[in-house]
Structure formats: structure tokens, C-alpha cells
Write a protein that binds this DNA or RNA. Sequence first.
DNA 1: AATCTATTTTTACGCGCGAAAAATTTTTAT
DNA 2: ATAAAAATTTTTCGCGCGTAAAAATAGATT
Lengths: 343, 343
Amino acid sequence: MTETKIRNMEEFAALSGISRPTLSKYFHDPESVRASTRARIEQALEVYDYRPNIFAMNQNRKLTKNVGIVVPYLADPFFAEIARNMEQRCFDAGFRPTLYSSHGQQHLENDILDSLRSLKPAGVLLAPLGRASDKNVIEKFCADVPTVLFDSNIEDIGEAFVGSDNFSFVSQTVEYLTRSGEPPCFFEMRTPANPNANKRRIAYLAMMEKLGFEPHVLKIDGEGWGFEEIGRQGALRILETNGFPTNTVLCSNDRLAIGLLSACYEKGLRVGRSEGSALRVASHDDHPFARFTCPSLTTAAHDYNSVSNCAFSTLSKLMEAGGRFSSRVETLFAARLVLRASA
Amino acid sequence: MTETKIRNMEEFAALSGISRPTLSKYFHDPESVRASTRARIEQALEVYDYRPNIFAMNQNRKLTKNVGIVVPYLADPFFAEIARNMEQRCFDAGFRPTLYSSHGQQHLENDILDSLRSLKPAGVLLAPLGRASDKNVIEKFCADVPTVLFDSNIEDIGEAFVGSDNFSFVSQTVEYLTRSGEPPCFFEMRTPANPNANKRRIAYLAMMEKLGFEPHVLKIDGEGWGFEEIGRQGALRILETNGFPTNTVLCSNDRLAIGLLSACYEKGLRVGRSEGSALRVASHDDHPFARFTCPSLTTAAHDYNSVSNCAFSTLSKLMEAGGRFSSRVETLFAARLVLRASA
DNA sequence: AATCTATTTTTACGCGCGAAAAATTTTTAT
DNA sequence: ATAAAAATTTTTCGCGCGTAAAAATAGATT
């Protein structure tokens, strides 16, 4: 590494003995130049430590190497974990990922998409807010920028969707719970933030009917993305009035279950599948904290890696295909049942 | 809003009847043009919906409006929450925040700083990994880019530090615990990830000495940022061998406490300040999940808002001051004791 | 109304790189 | 060895905006 500070590609071209346009090609895609030239460039690169100006590159290139990753609520470790995977995948593939969180608010989601647009991203991985999303805004965005939706589907918007097969989640939990004890009631928000919740309720109802049991859906009130607190308040209200209709509760998602478990603990209600427990609780998602709840939470787990890998590779294909698929692609991943102490 | 698509500032100048250099000034700082001109521009802006090309701007400006926010581990909702606050503050002040997480890994932290540098950011808010940080890399970065450190201090590096007064945290918890029951032992990692842990241990020892009690420090093994699991395993080992030396445990941080509580629950050990509890547990940070543990966690709370506000306003001053302070500024915030059920 | 000052306009150049076309070299195939 | 194909170099232009300097204009001052 010499001390020569290189100002631009012109200088680096002069010093390395390679023409500037060839260097430009190399930086755009190292594979696009002959192996021998590539070797010479990389050799020179070690000597001179030059890096192209990212703003000048992005200004002039029709397509940048930027990839936007947008999640609805980053304070949820579930999304943090998914985002981490996706970031890594983007980076490994030579893209520049940038992470955004809508923090549960429509105006932020809109702002993010707006500012993302001006970054001319090669592609975007977007987990919409869901119910709170401004569908028109998202649709317009997807029309302009190659976008793969994940986690929360919006019908016919975006070129592809990668998410979870909610029926697989619910059927496994319901099947297990009914087989090992009383059939569960279903614990959810009255106005859920995203469409997965609706699909899970429908799957619950279908499974219960199929198995010949009476379904019970408990809808609790609450707005926003503080699911734990909503679950807690909802459970407290139930425990202070009629109690749960069965001794087994299936929560729509783990964050609600975390709140519910804290309510049960406070009320002295023993939860678990062991002898002497008053209630069994199970849920869906395998939230990073599910193994640390008291008791640890039986849940249907996402395959975090598969979801993020698939979302990125779908986006990758989409970008290669010039931003359009002939038809919208939906990929759903099945759940893996994780048995812990709560049910 | 007309349908005319404007390609560049030149066109917008022609259509709005304002010269391009004046527009350039306006976009750099709206206050820098005469009020009447500003009004004309903003009026035209509503008609034509033009936005300057961000890459061209950043390429030519000496200083961009980019601000980097770097946290060590985004899957920790504590950092997610801090980052959310900071993002908002940046945005409100007309900057473009970009969020990065080192995910607990040195090479990622280095990569982030490296790629951040090429974004020519006006300033950076950096919470270093701590022990795992490559101090030389961070020092060099801070020499080039106006940087305010937060959460985790590194001596003499960066122009300023904003964090918490660990003594305030620990003195409050120790004082409360000793006043209301047995003096606590201190539960921490043998090789903590960041310097706050060391300061907390020292504060614990000082407080215990001052109050005339025998200190007990329990050091548990484990590497990485999965604190809950480390806390859990450490607690299980203790419970399976000698047990805790006192009936009161003070954890270095809430994430360890979450793991510890799950271990206690599994072992059937009743935790709380109520009658019939075998153990009291308290901690520090007021992690977003601390209110949902079983029992809910007594802890010393950060003032999230103050920390993020102060960090940003410090950075703001730093940027206005041209990137250098005459002397390094450290701002520490006191804790607020939050009494819940665990102690 | 004349003068002064702050602001805007005009003009011109530069930033660092992408991209296209034509000329040249190297590689591969025959 | 030679022709054809592929890769590279040269040349030239353009992107959208920042910025500097000089000229023109608006507003404020007396």
C-alpha cells in the first residue's frame, strides 16, 4: 500500500496502466473483463487502494447497486433478525443494503418509499405495515421499483411475495394441542395489524371444524404495534371476568402470547403442560424471546433463513429479469413445531 | 400538480422563473434566500413537484446531509428503540439518517465504518461494539468523520460521548435492594461485551462497601451477544450447584436478567418481593420487555429520549462547529428506578 | 431621488463517472 | 498460419448539480 492518494478513476487508470472504461466495466461487474485484466486490476487495487466515488457511480448508472429493506417495526426482534439475514445476503451478492423501519406508522412508510425512490434502488424487499399501509402508495412504488414483498402480503401488489404458509402454522399447533389435551381457543387482536392474523384465524376455524371441535375466538381490543401490552391487557380482562373458555389457548402470534403469559403469571395462573397447570398456551412465529418466557413458549417456528434467502434470491431474479415477472410469484414456507414447556 | 415531468434543476429554473444558482442555494438551505424568493420557489414546488438529484448533490457538495447511525446489535430492542428516536431527530432536522447494525461482529463494524466513510456523512452517531471493537479502526474513522459516540464509551475517541451514568444506575438499585431486604449479589458476564458492565461492577462494589455489606460477584461464562441465553445457562449452573449466595440478585443488565428469570422459573424458584418468594431479582436498563417478564422486572431505567436527543443535538453542534470540539464532551444521564414485581 | 447593500442573474467551469462508437489488440477457431 | 470473434482501448460526450466571479437588479437608507 503506497501513500499515493488517488482522486479518481482517471488517475487510477494512469497508474495501473488500464483504460478507464475498462476499469468502469470492472467495477460494475468484475466478471465482465478478461481474467488476465481482472488480475492486473486487482493487483493494482492492492497497491493503490482506490475506490470509485459512489455518488458519481449512482448518478450515471441507469441502475444502482442499492437495495432497500423495509420492515414495519424494527423494535420487534423478529424483524430485526429477518433484516439481518437479508442484509447479509445482499452484501454477499455485491449490493448495498439499506435498512428502514416504518415504526408502525403509515406516514413513515410513505416517507421511506418516497426517499427510497430517489435512491434509484436496483430492488426493494418490503414488508408492508399491512392494514395500516396506504395501498395506493405501495402500488405506485412497486410500479416504479422492482419490489418483492415479504411477511405481509398485499394482493396483486409487487412482483412477488415471500411469506409463511399460515395454514401450516396453525394446523400444526391445533393438531398438536387437540391431540395432547383440550382443543384450544384462539386469542387474537380484534383489528390485527397484518393479514397473517386473518389467515391464521381462518385456518384455526377450518382446523377445528375438520377435527369436529367447537371453535372459540377471543378478540381483544387494542391499536398499534405494542402487541405484548395489548395481549397482556386483553388477557387480564379475560382472567378478571369469565376466564378462558377452555384450558388451552392458542395465540395468533408470540408477542401476544408474551403479554398473555405475563398476565397469567401476575394472576397466579400456572401455565404449562405439566401436572397441576391450569392453562396451556401455544402460539406462532418462534419469536427470539419465546424460549425465555415463563414457561418457555410452545410455538410454530418460521424458518428465518429460508424466508430471507428466498426473498433475496427472488429479488435477485427479478432484478435480472429487468424488474418484471410474467406473473406474480408467491412462495410460502411451512412452519416447524417447537415444543416447549407452555403447552 | 401538473403532469410535466421535470428532469433537472435547469428545467425547474426555467419553469419557475428563478435562476438555477438561486435554486441551488435554496435546496442547500432554504433560509439562505430572501423570504419573497423562498415563497416563489415553494409555490413553484407545489406546482411542479421537482426534487433535486440526490447523487449529483452529494457528489458536488463538500458536505452531505447524510447522518449514519450505528448500533452494535439491532436485535436488541433497546438499540432499536434508541435508533428510532435518533432517526426521527435527524429527519426533523433535515438530515438523511441511515441505520446500521454491527450485529455483534467486529468485521461488520469495520465494514460499516468503511462504507460509511464513502458516503461522506455530515456526522455519525456511533455506539461501538465495545470490547470487540477494533479501536484503531474507530479512532481513524473518528479522525475523518465528525462522530459522537453513545452507549459505549471508548476513552478519548470521538469528539463527544453520550451515555448513562452507571453509578447512578447501580447506586439506586443497590440502595433500594439493601433498604428493602437482603443485600444483593451481582450477576454478570465474565467477559462483558461493553464497558458499561465494568463500570456497573465497580459501582456495585463501591456501594456495597459504602453500606458496609459483603459484596458477591457472580461471573458467568459465555461469549457473544446472546445475553439472555448466557444469563439463563449461567443461572441454571448456579442453581444446580451452590445456589445464589444471597436471596437477592442484581443483574448487570436486563437481558441477563431475562435469562436468569427463565432459569428460575424452570427450576421452580419463586421470584419476587412478595411473601413466599425465594429470590429477589433486579437489574438495569429497562429493556422494552422488562415489564413482561415473569415476574415483571424491577430495574433502573434509561431515559431513552434524553439520550437520543442529547446525542443528536451534540452531533448537531459538532457539525456546526466544523467537526471539532475544543475538548471532548461527555454527557451522562442518571437512571430512574422502576419498581416492579421482581424485587 | 440618489446611494448603498443585499440578493439574484448570467456565465462559465468542474466534479467523477457511465456509455456509446470506432479503432485496435488479443484470443479463439479453423 | 490465418480468419473470425471477442475483448480492450481511445475518443468523445453527457449526467445533474455545486460553485465562483462578474453583472444586473431589487430593496433599504438617508
